[in-house]
Design a binder for these strands. Sequence first.
DNA 1: TGTCTATGTTGACGTCTATCGATGCAAGTG
DNA 2: CACTTGCATCGATAGACGTCAACATAGACA
Lengths: 96, 96
Amino acid sequence: MTSEEAETAARMFKALGDPVRLRLFSAVASHEGGEACVCDISDVGVSQPTVSHHLKKLKEAGLLTSERRGTWVYYRVQPSVLAAMGRLLAGAPTGV
Amino acid sequence: MTSEEAETAARMFKALGDPVRLRLFSAVASHEGGEACVCDISDVGVSQPTVSHHLKKLKEAGLLTSERRGTWVYYRVQPSVLAAMGRLLAGAPTGV
DNA sequence: TGTCTATGTTGACGTCTATCGATGCAAGTG
DNA sequence: CACTTGCATCGATAGACGTCAACATAGACA
């Protein structure tokens, strides 16, 4: 595993390394239709700006995508990234 | 996903959320025999105390175990934890 | 016993991060 | 146009984190 690969992968793991973000991510992933608007998942015990902050982090890490439809903003997971992280953990290193 | 589950899982993801720790973990996981002494994997670009610090973090997160044999300390991965994280990412939520 | 090598621990320092209140922006509704 | 709702951004603050130098400890060997 090269230094660059480690940084890329670590960025994703780091994004899931916060309880609030993990719950938000799980909520989006398990929501009906594979997507959820912020109002559906914002009940994680923190204020609304904090939720927005964490969703932005998850988006920056490439784990979520967002789309505005009318009044609401819908978040959706990036399946390919999930698969890559799963492989990494399953014992199939990227390039070692 | 409850708050407690999120905290437990987030602690593991967080442990892998640092490039140095991810490289150390990958090095141990891919090393011959599934274990490695610190001298084998300490070439990650940081000082020796920092390596020790990160290995301690990984051990606290339950991702590694350590065993002293003579002069050297050998680290080994916890396979069950890996499988659990893999399942989490593969789309089999723990309790949602 | 003394010394060297291999690791772990401590203390300090600078940086990052999570959180909040206040505010701003977009879109629907009257 | 005014008002409300949903979400993002800004500024500030407290706490966590990564890193290193210095020191401590454990084992091997002469």
